[in-house]
């Protein structure tokens, strides 16, 4: 029993158990990281169903790549990278029209703060940004990553990341000002 509790509490031990083929451990990994993966896709597409599909794809791919994951911190990096690239690839493949959140799903992201309308409007505006700016903004403000970490995840130069963030913020300011 103690061993089970320890295994559940230590992310590296959970990862090692999952790598040995323990499905319960893999399930715990999903529980631990699902909000991060799902939210990156949700803020990219503005569509809960599509975000759920993307999250499933990412975790199926993780299962097949478990042997290559070196540590729990590498796992977080890997999940952010694969989810970001998967979102951009999916968008390129299907050329989806951005769906405003109020059309897409009434179960929009819950917020503990009172300014729900502004937050909702901001999420709608983020979904309307160009792909590269959108994923950069999501990683910056959802995952609280600095531009250097974002450039490692997206595999693009630091200067480009900063440019995407700057332009995205400018566009959001302008659109919010126009409202």
């Amino acid at each position: 029993m103690t061993a089970i509790i320890e295994a559940a509490g230590d992310p590296d031990e959970t990862l090692r158990s999952a790598q040995r083929g323990d499905h319960d451990a893999f399930s715990r990994l999903i529980d631990e990281h699902e909000a991060m993966v799902f939210s990156i896709a949700l803020h990219f597409f503005g569509d809960r169903d599509r975000a759920d599909e993307i999250a499933q794809d990412v975790f199926v791919r993780l299962y097949r790549s478990l042997a290559a994951i070196e540590s729990s911190s590498h796992l977080v990096f890997w999940l952010r990278q694969v989810t970001s690239r998967r979102c951009i690839d999916e968008k390129r493949r299907f050329r989806l029209r951005a769906v405003p959140l109020d059309e897409a799903d009434a179960r929009a992201v819950e917020s503990p703060e009172p300014d729900l309308l502004l937050e909702r409007r901001l999420r709608e505006l983020v979904v309307e940004l160009p792909d590269a700016q959108r994923i950069a903004i999501t990683l910056r403000y959802q995952e609280d990553l600095d531009p250097a970490e974002i450039c490692r995840i997206l595999g693009i130069p630091l200067r480009t990341v900063k440019s995407h963030l700057y332009r995205a913020l400018q566009a959001l300011r302008k659109k919010l000002g126009d409202c």
Binding site: E34, F38, E119, Y141
Partner: peptide, 16 residues
């Protein structure tokens, strides 16, 4: 405001 708007959300139960 972006930090608040883009906070993590949970998927529907049973993703695992």
């Amino acid at each position: 405001n972006l930090e608040r708007a883009l906070h993590r959300a949970d998927p529907a139960p049973g993703l695992a």
